[in-house]
Design a protein around this nucleic acid. Structure first.
Length: 834
RNA sequence: GCCCGGGUAGACAAAUCGGCAAAGUCGGCGCUCUUAAAAAGCGCUGCUCGAACGAGCAUUGCGGGUUCGAGUCCCGCCCCGGGUACCA
């Protein structure tokens, strides 16, 4: 007996084999549609699917340890838990690897997937493997293509020529969301603007719903804020300015139509299609050409710098301010963006910082039309440039605004918009920052777009029976401004599905975010070979009850997935509006130096050696114990050892009890006293604490600390009887199981002979949570002066008497007058003296 | 600039509803077991006085306020991290 030791090398594979052989974590769809077949409520627990590249890193371990703890907890609360796994298998890293080595991306991807599967099994994550999927398999992307066709038929997938972001390094276009500070999100190369015809998804149709429905889901406030920011809804008006000389109307969008009287000039973006036409034949023509060419050549990054001085050129034309009938000069300037609003603005220099800077540089009139709140004798001739725009409230009022003078800003806005509407010169309007989602990519390793171009029939979607359009093998993965697929002539040339004439396939592939925008639905019905999914099955499992992932997906993935679900709902494919009812965003694990882990810094910690040296349980517990799970935390090797020691301590308790008599019961012993009582109380306290920490709070760090306290308490009471020790040890094993499933299962079996995952989550015995007496804190003027034992539930008067009688209170009350006494039952007494 | 996080012992952290600040882990010190070491177990670990029991004092980035009582609420700042920005 003496040399028995905690041996994870033996314990962990043993339990993993049991769970694999018995398919313990699989849930079937059979109960769906058969009332009463399985009365348990469902719970869909999902971590964001990994991109399989090399081996999983420490961030994956945290993500899946977190989700697994929630899944185990939910199961033991009696829920039917769906907890699947898959791989986001298309993507650029595998393709870039193929370019440099010639290895087919499918091969390297499948190798990575095998490494991930192996890791997840060795970590003991409770996955329903029967639903496993990978987005690069034809059995999956067949349905990605099917979805594309549904969106195409609905007009939600369309082609248009537009100024798009082009990454010269990856030789592909990028979605707006994939451009970070003018650089490619993936490779960091400076993004260029190109005019190209591309595929888009009409996500802007859903802008209002994507914004409004944020109120219906339990997501972290900062993630919602980021989405709101990205959608960027602005309420205002569209106002028409007419160029009389050429007879053309130019609508502009403004959030402040109440300042229309202050619009003293008009500015167009360099990209505006009418710029050259307007300048033609004027004295400024040459100058305009030079300015525009220079502006277009400038990198988006440089151009976007806010501190840049304002530049521009007059167009030599004027437009009419619809309200004042004044002729105001037109300019072209790069501070106006073509992609927002109409690509032209009315400039109100008195009330807009940017317009003010421009007006100052070009010596243009500045006319104040809004007086700030409480500013009775506002100097209209010398207005502050940025003050009046601070707010838009009923306290500001219009000045210098003809018949509208005197109205407050809110009423003035309404009155001016109404007037414009009557005159046919404008109307109330809402604008969004959100752009349509550009989904075509000129790359190889992605899902082919299932469209055929026929000279006679035009764009024809590939019929469902011909799906999937399989990705052909190619010899050369090098991107050359068009997809490598374009070189696969035999694949490109097809017969038109409609007229059987000669036709060509679309050679672009889809953005990989398309693949991951619906995988959570496929999990529900993963082995359905006849359809993407059956609606009743999906409606039964969805939405995901708890989604877990990194905050880096706050905009891209989470916005696209929400859009897809809303589009599916409109197509009658699903009966819900939001994919993820609750979201938890985990913090990053930083290197031991507190810096973000990266190969170049050399501070990368890999989970594999830790699992091999200590155990999967230690690695899992540590990443949860390291700190609040939603915050970043630096890796610490010594703290990891501490967690391992704790697990070994718990195992030894179980091992000692395995040799003892009376193994058949691990129930709470009746009427415990002395050491027994202390240990039994602590066990109940731990049940209460861990349960509270897990229910919605995700305070895994304090939950594990509570089990540590329980184990410490058992060690500190060696005099406790076997029954009490057995109960307390079984409770510790039961509570640690969601975090350290192998050890939890092993110790629980040692002590009780039973399987912990088949046991319900323990309930605390309310009688054991409160002692008969408590330590009454006795304060004088808020400072602790003594403590005394008092009966739980004692009357206020009794507590006051007890406190006043203590030596510490006496010493500080003596010689003073007692002003009042505050009593907090079962806690403290505060004597206030003068 | 704006919007979020965060700032508590030597380190990481806890304090969930305004009620004993510092649970837990690491590190440090001491002890037990041992020929010894490791492992394991126990205790101490803000400051001052004290051998000890104990006593006193201080303390949650800084400055103010509300309150019998503030890490927690309010006002004004400082520092660190993240997101975002000529968005009309």
């Amino acid at each position: 007996m003496a040399d028995r030791r905690y041996d994870p090398k033996q314990i962990e594979p043993k339990w993993q084999a049991v769970w694999a052989d018995e398919h313990t974590w699989e849930v079937s769809n059979e109960a769906i549609g058969h009332p009463g077949a399985d009365p348990r409520a469902k719970s869909y627990v999902l971590e964001m699917l990994p991109y399989p590249s090399g081996e999983p890193h420490i961030g994956h371990l945290k993500n899946y340890a977190l989700g697994d703890a929630i899944a185990h907890f939910q199961r033991r609360l009696g829920r039917r838990v769906l907890h699947p796994m898959g791989y986001d298998a298309f993507g650029l890293p595998a393709e870039n690897h193929a370019i440099s080595t010639g290895v087919h991306p499918r091969r390297s991807t499948d190798e990575s997937i095998a490494a991930f599967q192996q890791a997840f099994r060795s970590w003991g994550i409770s996955i329903d493997w029967s639903r496993e999927l990978a987005t690069h398999e034809p059995s999956y992307y067949r349905w990605t293509q099917w979805i594309f066709v549904r969106l195409f038929e609905r007009g939600l997938a369309y082609r248009k020529e537009a100024a798009v972001n082009w990454c010269p390094h990856d030789a592909t276009v990028l979605a707006n969301e994939q451009v970070i500070d003018g650089h490619c999100e993936r490779c960091g190369a400076a993004v260029e603007v190109r005019q190209l015809e591309q595929w888009f998804f009409r996500i802007t149709d859903y802008a209002d719903r994507l914004l409004d429905d944020l109120d219906t889901i339990e997501w972290p406030a900062h993630v919602k804020a980021m989405q709101r920011n990205w959608i960027g809804r602005s309420h205002g008006a569209e106002v028409t300015f007419r160029c009389e000389e050429l007879g053309i109307d130019y609508p502009v969008f403004t959030t402040r139509p109440d300042t229309l009287f202050g619009a003293t000039f008009f500015v167009m973006a360099p990209e505006h299609p009418d710029v050259f036409r307007l300048a033609q034949g004027t004295a400024r023509e040459q100058e305009v050409h030079e300015y525009v060419n220079h502006a277009l050549a400038e990198s988006p990054e440089l151009r976007g710098a806010a501190e840049k001085p304002k530049t521009g050129v007059p167009l030599g034309r004027t437009v009419t301010n619809p309200l004042t009938r004044e002729q105001i000069p037109m300019f072209v300037s790069d501070y106006v963006l073509m992609e927002y609003g109409t690509g032209a603005i009315m400039a109100v220099p008195a009330h807009d910082q940017r317009d003010y800077e421009f007006a100052t540089a070009f010596d243009l009139p500045i006319r104040a039309v809004i007086a700030p709140a409480g500013d009775a004798d506002h100097d209209a001739d010398h207005p502050p440039a940025d003050q009046a725009f601070v707010a838009h409230t009923e306290n500001e009022r219009l000045i210098n605004s003809g018949e509208f003078t005197g109205l407050n800003a809110v009423a003035g806005q309404q009155a001016i918009v109404d007037w414009l509407d009557r005159e046919g010169l404008g109307h109330a309007s809402v604008h969004f920052r959100l752009r349509d989602w550009l989904v075509s990519r000129q790359r190889y390793w992605g899902c082919p777009i299932p469209i055929v171009y026929c000279e006679r029939c035009g764009m024809v979607p590939v019929p469902e029976a011909d799906l999937p359009v399989e990705l052909p093998d190619v010899r050369d993965y090098q991107p050359r401004g068009r997809s490598p697929l374009a070189a696969a002539e035999r694949w490109v040339n097809v017969k038109c599905p409609s007229c059987r004439g000669d036709a060509r396939r679309e050679t672009d592939t889809m953005d990989t975010f398309v693949d991951s925008s619906w995988y959570f639905i496929r999990y529900c019905d993963a082995r359905n070979y006849a359809a993407a999914w059956d609606r009743p099955v999906v409606d039964a499992w969805m939405p995901v009850d708890q989604y877990i992932g990194g905050v880096e997906h706050a905009i891209l993935h989470l916005m696209y997935a929400r859009f897809f679900v809303k589009a599916f709902a409109d197509l009658g494919l699903v009966g819900f509006q939001e994919p993820f009812r609750a979201l938890f965003t985990q913090g990053m694990i930083l290197g031991p130096d507190g810096q973000k882990m990266s190969k170049s810094r050399g501070n990368v910690i890999s989970p594999t050696p830790i699992v091999e040296r200590l155990s999967a349980d230690a690695a899992r517990c540590y990443v949860l114990f390291i700190g609040p799970p939603d915050q970043d935390a630096a890796w610490s090797e010594t703290s990891l050892e501490g967690v391992h020691k704790f697990l070994a301590r718990l195992w030894r308790l179980g091992d000692q009890l395995a040799a003892s008599e009376g193994r058949e019961s691990a129930d709470q012993p009746p009427d415990p006293a002395g050491d027994d009582l202390a240990v039994v109380r602590k066990a109940n306290w731990a049940i209460e604490k861990v349960t509270g920490d897990l229910l919605g709070r995700f305070a895994f760090n304090t939950a594990i600390a509570a089990v540590m306290e329980l184990v410490n308490e058992i060690y500190r009471h060696p005099g406790a009887g076997a029954d009490a020790r057995r109960f307390a040890t079984a409770t510790a094993a039961s509570l640690i199981f969601p975090f350290a499933p192998h050890l939890g299962a092993e110790v629980y079996e040692l002590v009780t002979g039973r399987r912990v995952w088949e046991e319900p989550w323990p309930d605390a015995d309310a009688d054991m949570l409160h002692a008969d007496t408590f330590e009454l804190v006795c304060q004088v003027n808020g400072k602790v002066r003594d403590r005394v034992s008092a009966p739980t539930g004692a009357a206020r008067e009794q507590l006051e008497q007890l406190a006043l009688a203590t030596r510490g209170v006496q010493a500080h009350v003596d010689g003073h007058e007692i002003a009042r006494v505050i009593v907090v039952p079962d806690k403290l007494v505060n004597v206030v003296v003068r």
